[in-house]
Design a protein around this nucleic acid. Structure first.
Lengths: 244, 244
DNA sequence: CATGGGATTTGAACGGGGTTCAAATCTTGG
DNA sequence: CCAAGATTTGAACCCCGTTCAAATCCCATG
């Protein structure tokens, strides 16, 4: 039945419209100002139609976060294939993500809000799974690089730590820095500026602490800067969308 | 005017009552279930009275977070004086905080929610400043230890990095791990368990990467475990409230 | 081309809960 | 003891998010 098929496609197109418009509204007016009725109006549909797609506002927000996470994951998916050593590829992820955070300033805030228990609890199981699934490639990319590093002996074969658990460190460091950087006035209060530069240096410290070769001393600014520049150049060449 | 004085004290007592009761309700029924009218009723006051103290619900939540942050800071304030090397005291902070997170399971969630832009934007300037101020001793404690470590040569004298910026690494790592650990089902989805154990190991990696002496290889589980136990014992002895 | 019934869309009405504010109550100075 | 100011009260208000009965659309069928 061709009709069925077309209707399905139209339905999906409409869902995409809702999600994109919502993202646009969030970007321009902030998360606070987003109202279901206004979103519907902006898309030229009735409020009720929105609820054919999302069973709550939180659900919609989760869908927006999922969409952007997929874009983010796309960049990560390609990093393992860059012509760089394993350690530099690990750094490439951090750099790509710093760029992503800067071109999508609301993304981390939105994700943080959505994964907050209060909100998370009012999203549907399906949406939650979709968001987790969208992030999967990121974890896979990290895991792949850690595996390769161990195979190469760039990284000692740890006795107990799984690949995912190894990747958890940079992941947590990154997440934490994003959280701190996003909390209005927090870092300013401690007179800390350029959090992302510190993220890079602390990432080097972390990797060096795990004896990930070739080791880079986080305390040598010129070496760190040179490595950052080198990796950025490769990123620019092979993944121009992530223009760091 | 003695009367003025007493009224002021009574007012403060009432504010404390509101904050404590709110915390209690959050603990028992969750953040979602907290309602201004029910809180007022539970304290045997009218709803309007609440608004004499907090100019919005978000303001109240910020106040609750501030109160708990002060308790958390109290533990941190005492750590610099523990009879341990600088590096072990740094670890002591992480351990104390892991314990704090476990005895106050809602604290991180609440803080995360409050510092989310959407909520943060609807709190009053005063409350925001109070929350930042409450956290100040934590940063001071970290700074003090970093300073001492440099003075001792436990930590190389970095050219560019301020003490606060040095402490930013463990701080971000810690914050990030708490965020990840709190996102329902996230770590499970990647088959990662016992996040706090990993936090400890990654913290060692980070400190070792900065060449903080005496270096500990994060990849030697027995050494890591012994150090954890040693520091925990000191914590138990000197700061029993933080019973790790 | 007309028709009817199921599917979809609509948007006004509903409901819950945060916030307000006029009336009630209390406090205090004379 | 009274009056005026300060404080407290809680019902009413209002702003959304959500629902659902009515309107509209779609399309298979005769």
């Amino acid at each position: 039945m061709g009709t069925e098929n077309r209707r399905q496609r139209e339905r999906e197109a409409r869902e995409t419209l809702f999600i994109e418009k919502a993202h646009e509204l969030i970007r321009s007016e902030g998360l606070l100002a987003l109202q279901m009725s206004r979103l519907a109006a902006a898309c030229e549909y009735a409020t009720g139609t929105l609820y054919q797609h999302f069973n709550s506002k939180e659900d919609l927000l989760a869908a927006v976060a999922t969409r952007t996470t997929r874009q983010r994951a796309e960049v990560f998916r390609r990093i393992p294939r860059l012509p760089l050593g394993t350690r530099s590829r690990m750094l490439a992820m951090v750099l790509a993500d710093i760029d992503f955070a800067q071109t999508n300033p609301d993304y981390y805030r939105l994700t943080q809000f959505v994964t907050t228990e209060v909100v998370w609890a009012s999203t549907s199981e399906v949406r939650r799974d979709e968001l987790l699934e969208a992030a999967q490639p990121i974890s896979e990319a990290v895991t792949a690089i850690v595996s390769e590093a161990r195979a190469n002996q760039d990284l000692p074969l740890a006795q107990e730590l799984g690949e995912e658990e190894m990747g958890l460190g940079p992941w947590a460091l990154n997440t934490g820095m994003q959280t701190l950087a996003n909390a209005q006035g927090l870092l300013d209060a401690y007179d800390i500026h350029r959090p992302y530069e510190h993220l890079i240096r602390h990432t080097h410290a972390l990797l060096t602490g795990w004896r990930w070769e070739p080791r880079i001393d986080p305390d040598e600014p010129s070496v760190v800067r040179a490595e950052t520049e080198r990796v950025r150049a490769v990123l620019r060449e092979y993944i121009p969308e992530a223009n760091p």
